[in-house]
Design a protein around this nucleic acid. Structure first.
Length: 107
DNA sequence: GGATTGACTTACG
DNA sequence: GCGTAAGCCAATC
């Protein structure tokens, strides 16, 4: 039944852990790298639970618009602490900080 | 087993 | 660039 097994969660988080300092990645990007491009929503759910499975940089994960998580208020402060710049209160400079391994928008 | 919801993404106006 | 709609999948009611 549950797809959100520890094995799957750690698999996703392993890619999250590969996001370099000062960079950010999208849910879909992580999902694609993990081999499940359609599981972007599951990635978000996993990240919300990631703190219970280990300390992962879940604050480096944003949506493709560069907007931070609506329910994760510390994210902005954490990203600023890493040198990530914001366009406004809820959007980072995704074009500047997005992870280089982007396969969807490799351009 | 159908309907609703969500840390998503893409398309359209 | 922003709001809405449709597509997507798993969990929850």
């Amino acid at each position: 039944m549950a797809v959100l097994t520890e094995e799957f969660i750690y698999h996703i988080l392993s890619y999250v852990d590969k996001v370099p300092y000062g960079k950010v990645a999208s849910y879909g990007q992580i999902a694609t790298l993990a081999g499940y491009p359609q599981y972007a929503r599951l990635v978000g759910k996993i990240l919300s639970l990631s703190e219970f499975y280990g300390e992962y940089p879940c604050h480096r994960i944003v949506n493709t618009k560069g907007r931070i998580a609506p329910h994760y208020k510390e994210q902005k402060a954490l990203l600023l602490a890493e040198g990530v710049t914001f366009k406004d209160a809820n959007h980072i400079n995704i074009l500047q900080h997005r992870w280089n391994v982007t396969k969807k928008q490799d351009k």
